[in-house]
Design a protein around this nucleic acid. Structure first.
Lengths: 337, 337
DNA sequence: TGAGCTTTTGGAAACGTTTCCAATAAGTAT
DNA sequence: ATACTTATTGGAAACGTTTCCAAAAGCTCA
């Protein structure tokens, strides 16, 4: 059916080995022979089959990116960074979108076994130690971004520090009753974004000598709706918080919507600070903790490329930090009745 | 190195054909034999090689999505719809991100030749007739979304009608000097989003007996920055427009930024209407023309699945329409000095 | 018991490359 | 010219499946 290397060899009057050498720019092909082969290829409009090729060479030319809910803005920003690197490579991007724990586990067990991709970038998902070491054993190059495993190359952002910055900023403005809208734990329960942010809050509270009040901490989906519902609840309390820290900007957007519903002016009646630094936070002028999202994708991808070239490297940990960006939604504590 | 079907056959004490039948759930395997094979598979932790498999079967289990600048919000929304369908199928998503015309053409010539994917969804890019018919000839299932070709299944949105709605809405509010911030033409110059929107504007102008003034139409990148720059220019004119129609919501965001820079109140001094209906337009309360973005991805994907099952179908054209959503940024024409 | 079915099974061939090695051609120095 | 050395070439083997066909095994019925 399709044109194969044998057809080219026949038309060019050479052996298949020679055609293969021409295709792969191997040395030691006489210029005249190369010419003949190239002519035949052009004449037949021949393209090598990538599948047959990877059958032998064990390389697929694809990079896998495993990411939860890739249509969320945070992940989109990370993907921007990924794309920036990939655009220069000549590789395909295979997106494994994780929508549930079951699906994540399926990918975690399937992906290391049969190399459908030359390397894997895992974003914001922490594999169990066992899973991680399987990747390492099977020799599949893996880089974790926004997640950590001792067995794999990891690129983490200081979430504890980021949350600390956010809460400290509120405390410095005089806030004492600070609500926290956290996101739910997705995945590994020991290392996760939500937990780290809670720790950062504790640290800031401790340093300021503030009492931690469990009723001011709510856990929701990492969404606008989740943030709104949680904030509605927080703002309904008899002693409502004067400031709310949201674990993501989208949740912070929800918090603002709740504030509006309660007719609270921001920041006069209520201060709000988000987390991530997605474009929306800029447009809505929400104070936030900026994560280096694009950089995360970019650095992670670079590391992965390096790893594909030279797979035998001891796992490395790269740390990035966050930056407090104060915008319109944070202000001094209101004088309450 | 890796465990193959032969190893399984040896351990189970059967032939490779039988193992293959078990893997593929073919009929006519004695339950006891199946049991033996499954045991061997479990014992060896065997997974079939997807590559070797597609070498024979000509199916890859992947779906390609060709999309320009996939990190733009409009495309993200379309991808949400795509993802919704894909999540139920057990297929991989290969994302071909197009950043330049050269790259688009490369994909257009490469993709039909060697089936790396079982089907291709092309978003907002219109292939030349020649390219389109090559896809058809080579028997690669293709669905166009937000683009049209007579040779391929296409799903289009009435961009002319949408732009007409937008402009008519402004005219009805009394606006006579209406600026248009259009996006640049990417790809096929006969069928494209920018051109359609310009036509819609003309239609509305014509119907209202308004004179078309070329100096009120500017073409920019489909970005915030582009919108802002164009609006700055429009608003600097001696007889500035009282309303601006932007060809995308992100450009409309830029227009709002420009208005702010000029200290124009919206909508009191200037009305603004966007196009697309991305989440940001809701958050910033921008009036807009809502495209059924998720539905586009979803329907396109459904069609593609159908086409993969049953490839011999004459190209079909599905039309969707837009919806005017009036929010805060459109109002009556100001009384000007 | 054996003839004539149907079900189950084994494994060669095929898929389209790359890799390798042996063979041949081309140089080079004597 | 001859004996080496090096550059070029052809094609068998291998990659790990699925597909297919012939063979074997298991039935059923007379």
């Amino acid at each position: 059916m399709a044109i194969t290397i044998h057809d080219v060899a026949r038309v060019a009057g050479v052996g298949i080995g020679t055609v293969s050498r021409v295709i792969n720019n191997s040395a030691n092909v006489k210029p005249m022979t190369r010419e003949k082969v190239l002519n035949a290829i052009a004449q037949l409009d021949y393209r090598p089959s990538p599948i047959a090729r990877s059958m032998i060479s064990k390389r697929t030319g694809s990079i896998g990116v495993l990411v939860p809910f890739f249509t969320r803005f945070f992940f989109i920003e990370v993907l921007r960074g990924v794309e920036a690197v990939l655009a220069q490579q000549n590789r395909d991007l295979v997106l494994y979108n994780v929508l549930s724990n079951a699906q994540r586990d399926r990918y975690f067990t399937e992906l290391p076994m049969r190399r459908k991709v030359d390397g894997l970038l895992i974003v914001s998902l922490t594999p169990e130690d066992e899973t991680a070491s399987t990747f390492a054993e099977k020799g599949m190059p893996v880089v974790l971004v926004d997640a950590y495993s001792p067995y794999l190359h990891s690129l983490v952002v200081d979430n504890v520090g980021g949350a600390y910055q956010a809460v400290k900023c509120l405390i410095e403005k005089g806030h004492r009753r600070i609500g926290f809208v956290n996101g739910i734990v997705e995945g590994n329960f020991k290392f996760n974004q939500a937990n780290d942010r809670l720790i950062g809050l504790h640290r800031a509270f401790g340093e300021a000598g503030l009492l931690f009040e469990p009723e001011l901490v709510l856990v929701t989906e990492w969404t606008r709706q989740g943030g709104k519902e949680a904030a509605m609840q927080l703002l309904s309390q008899k002693k409502r918080p004067t400031a709310i820290f949201a674990a993501s900007d989208m949740q912070a957007v929800g918090v603002l919507e709740a504030a509006k519903a309660f007719n609270f002016a921001v920041p006069d009646d209520l201060s709000v600070i988000g987390y991530d630094g997605i474009e929306i936070s800029e447009l809505l002028e929400i104070s936030t903790i900026q994560q280096p999202m694009q950089q995360m994708g970019q650095l992670g991808m670079h590391k992965l490329m390096e790893l594909i070239e030279n797979p035998q490297q001891p796992p490395e940990l790269i740390r990035l930090s966050t930056k407090l960006i104060e915008r319109r939604t944070t202000g001094p504590v209101p004088i309450m009745a």
